[in-house]
């Protein structure tokens, strides 16, 4: 096991979680679970962090913030989506303002489900992520780590809801409304 696996420093960001998952992430960092046993430290600084834990679904306003945090982290780094909202959007998936999970903004390495996610799941996800982190460190040392590609800038209008994008649904609704208004005039 190499050193990057023995000292993963964590950055925690709340995208737009209901706070259920945040409380669990913080619970995992309490003395009860004592993650410092594995060298894990909770830093508030993306420039020092190796793991990026994100909770909650992502809306349009969050995207630039999440991307900035992600880009400030140095390689090797991994992203863990904590909770079903961060994985897919969860119960908020069909809300008009929700784009989806974290992977609409940045590439995600580990998806950790649960509503709310349990501290045990978080620790499992981190352990899973450490393997990926080690792989990236090896690639970086060999000089062959490709910079991760960011997904194309998403927009709420392009979000498909029940088989249709929001923009198309709006266009249809407006066309319908115009048509009805025209019929009433006649």
């Amino acid at each position: 096991m190499s050193e990057s696996v023995k000292s993963p420093w964590v950055l925690h960001y709340d995208a737009s979680s209901c706070n259920g998952c945040d409380i669990e992430v913080l619970a995992a960092l309490t003395p009860l679970y004592d993650v410092e046993r594995f060298g894990i430290i909770n830093t508030g600084n993306p420039k020092h962090a190796d793991l990026f834990l994100i909770t909650g679904s992502v809306n349009e306003r969050q995207v630039p913030i999440i991307r900035q945090l992600y880009e400030q982290m140095l390689e090797p780094k991994i992203v863990i989506a904590c909770g079903i909202c961060a994985c897919t959007g969860g119960v908020f998936k069909e809300c008009y303002n929700t784009l989806g999970g974290v992977d609409v903004a940045i590439p995600v390495d580990v998806y950790a489900p649960g509503c709310a996610i349990r501290p045990e799941t978080i620790i499992d996800a981190v352990v899973e992520g450490l393997g990926i982190l080690e792989e990236k460190r090896r690639l970086l040392a060999a000089g062959s780590l490709e910079p991760a590609e960011l997904p194309k800038q998403p927009s709420a209008a392009d979000k498909p809801v029940r088989g249709e994008t929001v923009a198309a649904a709006w266009q249809k609704a407006i066309a319908n409304a115009l048509q009805t208004a025209g019929q009433e005039e006649q």
Partner: peptide, 18 residues
Amino acid sequence: GPPFLQPYYDVRKLLAKE
């Protein structure tokens, strides 16, 4: 608490970063 050599692991990791 962490292993006794944790500070060394931390520094090794930092040196291996981009």
